[in-house]
Design a protein around this nucleic acid. Structure first.
Lengths: 240, 240
DNA sequence: GATCTTATTCAACAACTGTTGAGAATATAT
DNA sequence: ATATATTCTCAACAGTTGTTGAATAAGATC
């Protein structure tokens, strides 16, 4: 039954199989036997190479993170340098942030595709998200946000963080590739068509950032107090 | 150890416990014994009331979906009626779409909060997403998109679907409340501060929609052929 | 008060879970 | 050829998984 007992060493075969399966069904939805069967090796090999299931999970997550973020950081700095002495456009900054991701997900092979679906899973998980994302992506994100602030010098930092969260959410759902938009649009859009995403995501979020900035500045100009929540909550129900 | 053997009937106690646990650790990360212990009832009661674990999962998902979408649909139509004979603003349309959600997640009690985290989980899941979201939310989403098209009559439908996907992603990550933005911003933003989200999400995505429309129209005006991808892929690597 | 329906518990099931230790195979170095 | 790591397999473990059927309790119906 062991399908691909190919030449690759068992450790990487396990990583590949785990990547694909974890991406599809999450950490708990996959057993070590699912993984090792798909990889064509014995179950005990996981303990030998990684220590346990949890460690295998983080190993899968880490494998591609470093290469990826090094390149993203370089690209970001390059975009910044090229625009000097001015700040780069929001579109250029955002592109540097997710271009390397979309490019690999689209044309990097099935391994990369699975990997980004896994990142989507982790990013949305209350259990793994804060730990693993912080650990491996925060330095890059901090730098990214710093450059955004240079490009929007009069924008309150809070707005930029919120804008980043919305951006990250949009990106994440894109990588999950659930195929939902395919059905919704009646085939007009395909979730796997990452070139379409690439053309659209930067304009979308850049406009979003500008709108958040405008909102904050106008609010600062007009009313001073916090006369927020124009229409008070429509239906303040209790009970769950 | 059974904590809340309160007056509520066992069926609903199971639903409540399952809701909270599924939201935190997904379908596979929770055992029936976890659920029934938290609910203070016997394991076998799940089979009696729901048939099995899978059916319990969908029961949890369905419980609040109908009430919710009925209200959202009414609100959407009300917004539309109030703006007649013109079309409502994009901001008003988007607000009608997620206001009822944010309001309940913020002030509906812990049950609602868990529920939206669960919807976030399902929406991002390649396994459950397409099936369950389609089944319970498509009628509303179709109507929502139709109204968006009225408000952007010259915008190609594709752009609206993409804009909706980005919107949904941003909303989804918000509901997951992983707390990541809290750390990133050094406490400047709190993921649980849904009033901040409410003020910002509509301007953000409305601006995004307008940017997608502008991009599509300008593309139609200038070049005709598909001279897309100005800079060809930077690094068309193979291998994973 | 007997009868039926509904709600709940108990005990047990076979299958599957991650993990472990002892040993075989394979490669590397001497 | 021999010694030595490294990589991998086998068999088994104790615990947990979802599910099941018989037994019990409670409530309504007549």
């Amino acid at each position: 039954m062991s399908k691909k007992t190919a030449g690759r060493p068992g450790k990487e075969r396990i990583l590949d199989a785990a990547e694909a399966l974890f991406a599809r069904r999450g950490f708990y939805g996959v057993s070590l036997r699912d993984i090792t069967e798909a990889a064509g090796v014995d179950v005990a090999l996981v303990a030998y190479h990684f220590g346990g299931k949890r460690e295998l999970f983080t190993a899968v997550f880490e494998r591609r993170a470093e290469v990826l973020n090094r390149e993203r950081l370089e690209l970001l700095e390059e975009v910044r340098r090229r625009a000097l002495p001015a700040a780069p456009s929001l579109e250029a900054i955002c592109n540097a942030f997710f271009e390397p991701l979309l490019e690999r997900s689209a044309r990097g092979g099935p391994g990369w595709k699975s990997y980004f679906a896994l990142v989507a899973y982790v990013n949305n998980s209350p259990e793994f998200g804060p730990l693993m994302m912080t650990r491996h992506f925060d330095p890059l994100v901090d730098r990214f946000i710093a450059v955004l602030r240079e490009a929007l010098p009069d924008c309150p930092p809070r707005e930029i963080y919120w804008g980043y969260q919305f951006l990250t959410g949009a990106l994440t759902l894109t990588f999950a590739e659930t195929g939902r938009i395919d059905k919704l649009s009646g085939g007009l859009c395909r979730a796997s068509d990452l070139d379409s995403v690439r053309e659209r995501l930067a304009p979308y979020v850049a406009a979003g950032f500008r709108a958040l900035r405008a909102r904050a500045l106008e609010g600062r100009a007009s009313a001073s107090g916090k006369a927020q929540a124009r229409r008070a909550a429509r239906n303040p129900r209790r009970r769950a």
